[in-house]
């Protein structure tokens, strides 16, 4: 492929991404969720791919961010407890400024809380390795869902309604499409920077041989905690916004959605190729589109089709799409035997 064609293609793709919600107004929410998927896969890959810690509990940060944002948004204008017990009975409209301010404040608090949570949880469980870490995080996700469904302050099992999106010249779909687009792009850029320097090498070293990394004097615990906190920040922001996009927070199906989002983020990263920067992006895109096609054209069989897809991924592309390409053409990824003579 020559370079001018490449530039033309990337400009075209860029324009398409920027204008997609205007071109397909009926799919705005789906397109916004696409970027959410990309973000979920990217943040899962920090731990799962680059660091070799398979976490099934990242959904905790997503849910905690979502609830924190909603509670703050509510608390600024209503009594949360009263509000929750009425289960959305007193719906009223916020002005755009109030809405954005409360959303911003809520997202910031959610992100902060999740960093604290990541550090506290990390101190307890980042010492676990392999299967033990995976099982422990799986438990965390389930426990968080159970706690939220039993906590009356958060509306318990009947959920929490987030504030209505104010009426303005642009709709909720457009707003959250660009929100998730920017969030996914920012996380991509931040991760690209982190992976390209010492931090990236250090977490790769932990993945390849943590005992060796320790015996070389690396501050492994610090790196692991930072990696988890970075994932937590982006997940909290995504969760807070997703609650507002959906409009209703169900503890098990929206906030701590372990069996859906929590598993999908792992699948998407593996499908695209875990441990690579572009892999999760590619995996999330393909996964989301195929999943939506299954829902549309194979209704009734969509879960079967999804299961089949998962089996095909694991059997034929155990290292993901990018991992497979890397195995076929390693020299494209900078691995080569240098022909030049010894200096």
């Amino acid at each position: 492929m020559n370079s001018s064609l490449k530039t033309l293609l990337s400009i075209g793709l860029g324009l398409f991404i920027l204008t997609a919600p205007l071109l397909f107004p009926n799919y705005q929410t789906q397109l916004a969720v696409l970027w959410l998927m990309v973000l979920l896969a990217l943040t899962w890959d920090i731990m799962g791919g680059q660091m070799g810690y398979n976490s099934f509990g990242n959904i905790v940060y997503f849910g905690v961010g979502m609830y924190t944002t909603a509670v703050i948004q509510r608390g600024l204008f209503f009594n949360v407890d009263e509000y929750a017990s009425m289960a959305g009975g007193t719906e009223s409209q916020l002005s755009l400024l109030d809405y954005l301010l409360s959303l911003g404040l809520g997202l910031a608090s959610g992100a902060l809380l999740c960093v604290v949570l990541a550090v506290v949880l990390g101190a307890g469980i980042l010492g676990l390795r392999g299967h033990y870490f995976a099982i422990c995080t799986l438990g965390l996700g389930i426990a968080a869902g159970e706690i939220a469904s039993g906590w009356d302050f958060l509306g318990a099992g009947s959920g929490l309604v987030t504030p209505l999106f104010p009426e303005t010249f642009f709709g909720r779909g457009i707003f959250f499409y660009y929100f998730f687009l920017i969030l996914a792009a920012v996380s991509f850029v931040v991760l690209r920077y982190l992976y390209s320097e010492r931090f990236g090498l250090a977490i790769n070293a932990v993945r390849d041989d943590e005992d060796k990394a320790e015996s070389m004097g690396l501050y492994t615990t610090r790196y692991k905690t930072i990696a988890w906190s970075v994932a937590a920040v982006f997940l909290a922001l995504a969760g807070g916004a997703y609650g507002n996009l959906i409009g209703f927070i169900d503890p098990m199906d929206v906030a701590f959605a372990g069996p859906t989002l929590g598993v999908w983020m792992v699948l998407m990263a593996i499908l695209g190729g875990k441990g690579t920067l572009w892999g999760p992006v590619i995996g999330a895109t393909i996964f989301h589109i195929t999943q939506e096609l299954f829902w549309t054209y194979l209704l009734g069989w969509q879960r079967v089709a999804l299961g089949l897809l998962i089996i095909i991924i694991v059997v034929f592309f155990p290292r993901g799409i990018l991992g497979w390409i890397r195995e076929q053409w390693p020299e494209r990824f900078g691995q080569q035997v240098d022909g030049e003579e010894q200096r």
Partner: peptide, 16 residues
């Protein structure tokens, strides 16, 4: 022997 198998030789040294 313990090395970081998924990284190239230069990276193995850079993180050491």
């Amino acid at each position: 022997t313990r090395i970081y198998g998924g990284m190239n030789c230069v990276q193995n040294l850079m993180i050491s």
